[in-house]
Nucleic acid binder design. Structure first.
Lengths: 169, 169
DNA sequence: ATGTATGCAAACCATTTGCAATGAC
DNA sequence: GTCATTGCAAATGGTTTGCATACAT
């Protein structure tokens, strides 16, 4: 894979950002960037923290939060808030443009490839707003939960049911 | 306005939902629904709590959270997570389809009218996923923050600057 | 009468903050 | 040598939970 090339690119971009903003180039910051760009897909702070703890380089949670903010600011990382609790993050480059299918039943987030949802014509209308990135969140019920829900509703007709509400994580 | 007609409709829909799920039809629940459909735009729990406290009907925060979950489940209310902290909600009916412009600088959320972003052709691809609703979040920098940022960067060239990071709320 | 829903206060937990120690410049 | 950055632990604050009381059925 040419992932190492991508890593080099984002590293350079990060360096540029740090320089221009007069921030220090600490090993922690580069280690975090390296880790994030070593995996595709979403991650949250806890998993990142644990992943780095296992590896050679451990950083504190505080530093993780500090650094991710820098990475968000310079556009190398994207932040998502699918549920109420944990924030999820995702590297900005090296992933195709995709929507997020979020199941209201089980909370699972699936990616769904998508063409150019955001057309140039639409972009034009937003002249006074400088777009960094955009996310499409599609909420609904996944196949598995759909079946469970239907079974549940059927049961409802014969016996009373205590809790039909969607389970929260 | 025909808002009262809409209110009647959603009230009926809610009743149906409560019945079919064997939930009780308490005055609190209807008061909350009524309040939510009395205003357009986004709201958070705190503002809803305070608004209802001012009015004749006070409900506890716990009940607010319980009820909003029911309203989410039956699709009368939509939930957003623009920032890390507070969840925002929005009535599902009576608002045009719109995107959300979220400024990474000041956190302000603006609505932006939008045509049919989600075309039938795209919908077709998602057969195994029952869509409840979808939201487009466009992150970027609003006009005001853009100016501030540029001024800040200019200043950076002559003096050192301690904190160029985006201000959090 | 029964058991769900409410309200209160305490608990939870991701994130933020204060501060002393470290290390990039 | 300075002062931003790190790491730790404590604080914060929106949301959840446990439990006694109220009330829809």
């Amino acid at each position: 894979m040419d992932n190492s090339k991508l890593k080099e690119q984002v590293k350079n971009e990060f360096t540029e950002y740090l320089n221009s903003h007069k921030h220090r180039k600490t090993p922690e910051r580069y280690a975090i960037l390296e880790h994030i760009y070593s995996a595709k897909g979403h991650f949250d702070m806890d998993s990142l923290y644990n992943a780095m703890k296992e590896s050679a380089f451990r950083v504190s949670r505080a530093t993780l939060y500090n650094t991710i903010e820098l990475l968000l600011d310079c556009g190398l990382v994207v932040k998502h808030q699918f549920g109420a609790n944990v924030s999820q993050y995702e590297r900005a480059y090296g992933n195709e443009n995709h929507d997020h299918l979020i199941c209201l039943g089980c909370g699972e987030v699936k990616e769904h490839k998508n063409g150019n949802l955001f057309t140039p014509a639409q972009q034009k209308k937003l002249q006074r707003f400088k777009i960094s990135y955009y996310s499409m969140y599609i909420y609904g019920t996944c196949n598995k939960c759909m079946r469970a829900k239907k079974a549940d509703e059927k049961k409802n007709k014969v016996t009373e049911n205590k809790n039909t509400r969607i389970k929260k994580k």
